[in-house]
């Protein structure tokens, strides 16, 4: 299954000037809990998606009330500093739209 078909919201945004926080909200509770129990969205998983070092994935948190998983990653440049490309951090979600989820892995 593609992640884009399982999720109703996929978004990124600054959480302060040094962190980009990424939210995936799932449509179905069952899929969410199945993936959560497997810790499908491990730090390794996020590091691979964004091509970054695992230390730059600061935390991954599952939020049951809305079937969501959140990852916090360190920005490659702080918001608005020289060399930044996205001051609000709102357009860093695109790689997630192409991801395939293997439910039975």
């Amino acid at each position: 299954m593609r992640l884009i078909d399982l999720a109703k919201i996929i978004r990124t945004k600054n959480s302060g000037p040094f962190i980009i926080t990424i939210d995936i909200l799932f449509k179905e509770r069952n899929i969410y809990y199945k993936l959560k129990e497997k810790n499908y969205f491990s730090k390794e998983w996020w590091a691979k998606i964004y091509n970054i070092n695992i230390e730059d994935v600061l935390s991954v948190i599952y939020f049951d009330p809305v079937f969501a998983v959140k990852a916090n990653i360190k920005r490659f440049i702080p918001s608005g500093d020289f060399g930044d490309t996205d001051v609000y951090g709102a357009q860093q979600h695109a790689p997630l739209l192409e991801v395939e989820i293997n439910e039975n892995y």
Binding site: K13, S15, L25, L58, I61, F63, P65, V66, A68
Partner: peptide, 17 residues
């Protein structure tokens, strides 16, 4: 909605709990 209100604590925040 429960989703719109609950998911708001996710927005722009590193730890929703």
């Amino acid at each position: 909605t429960v989703t719109s209100v609950a998911s708001h604590t996710l927005y722009e925040k590193s730890d929703p709990y």
